[in-house]
Design a protein around this nucleic acid. Structure first.
Lengths: 212, 212
DNA sequence: GTGAAAGTTGAACCGACTTTCAACTTGCGA
DNA sequence: TCGCAAGTTGAAAGTCGGTTCAACTTTCAC
């Protein structure tokens, strides 16, 4: 699963030439990364401070600069961490799906549950749009590409209408992703409503449309 | 139109007890508000500065504090301004609609055009999630309520399936709004693609769904 | 056990921004 | 026209947080 990737990410998490070389260093880097996630999640990027992060981590201020060049760089590292977390949480939802549209329904339900349990993560990824636009873009572009690939595969299996071209399904992937994000914001982050119910209604619409 | 509302907003735009009392003051407040919109749109909230705003406005630093208590307060004023701008741009799109779903298609196309022409506005509203959460929430809640009301009216006219309850249409309003926002981000802000084409595909899906 | 490399520390420095304010200018009402 | 309230000015004080660095401690390969 994510094992290999995680290790690579842990090494590349720190700024260039700042990777830890001993077990102690690795432990400290991990503490800072976790502290940063909490700090950013609770206070938002601009109200977060390096002092705040290092205090939570229980290390001295200067230690931060052993691993990172700036606040922006930790934020970026945290976003990439979180992005992988969302992906890995949603991935297993597809295994019992009866068809492509049912798969998307399960994915949405799983995402809504994740959003409810990790409001801070949700907030961090969203805030990346303004702090680290490239990480934000990367997160949503890979997500959209993954959705589009599933839709195209579904169409080729005859589960989704053959009227939609590849390019059209790519557009619709963005629409579905946006819908999911806003449903998460409204029905998981702002208020905890029944994930299954929200996913079911959305899926019904996705399957047959709105028309009478 | 927005005339009445705009006047009210211009007065309430400044902080409490800081409304301008002369024509000159009103002009200066307007200059600061416009400058703030440009500054926030170009640099984002945290990279924006009061100095930057007053320089763009061509007034002295201290003048800012004649009308506003802080950077957060101007930001809030700007967001409310922009929110009204989006609404007023999209509103006329409905007048030639053939049915409820066609109305939403026209609204989306109009929104996509707006997003392309006002990338800065788009950015400002999105950033409000982190700077002034209540203004952000207000913007999207009123927008969702407006969409839901149109869907319910459409259902009651027999244009939208009677299978959907009021509560379900309210959920779907959030889904549609999220879809619109992400389509705007991807196909208008990041890359200028044909608004009509994007709106048509989305509308087709909305009408009949994805299923083969 | 030893020494060099890695890691840690926090006071001090630095720059950038917000906010204040007393002197000054403008413009409106009488 | 005059006087005063409203508005404007920008230097300077105050604040805050990022970043540096030289002294110190720990780790680990040999």
């Amino acid at each position: 699963m994510g094992g290999r990737v995680d290790q690579e990410e842990q090494i590349s998490a720190a700024s260039d030439g700042k990777a830890p070389r001993t077990a102690r260093g690795e432990r400290t880097l991990r503490k800072i990364l976790d502290a940063a996630r909490n700090e950013f999640g609770e206070r938002g990027f601009s109200d977060s401070s390096i002092v705040g992060i290092t205090q939570r981590a229980g290390v001295a201020l200067g230690t931060f600069y052993t691993y990172f060049d700036s606040k922006e760089v930790v934020f970026q590292a945290v976003v990439r961490d979180m992005s992988a977390l969302v992906r890995d949480h949603v991935a297993p939802a597809f295994k019992d799906a009866t068809d492509a549209i049912d798969g998307e329904r399960r994915a949405l339900e799983s995402f809504l549950q994740f959003a409810r349990e990790h409001r801070d993560v949700y907030r961090i990824i969203d805030e990346a749009e303004f702090v680290d636009a490239s990480a934000y873009r990367e997160h949503y572009e890979t997500t959209a590409t993954r959705i589009a690939a599933r839709l195209i595969a579904g169409r080729d299996k005859g589960e989704i209408s053959a009227d939609y071209s590849d390019a059209e399904l790519e557009m619709l992937a963005w629409a579905m992703m946006g819908a999911n994000v806003f449903l998460g914001l409204r029905f998981s982050v702002w208020a905890s409503e029944d994930s299954k119910c929200v996913a079911d209604v959305t899926s019904r619409m996705l399957r047959s449309g709105l028309q009478a």
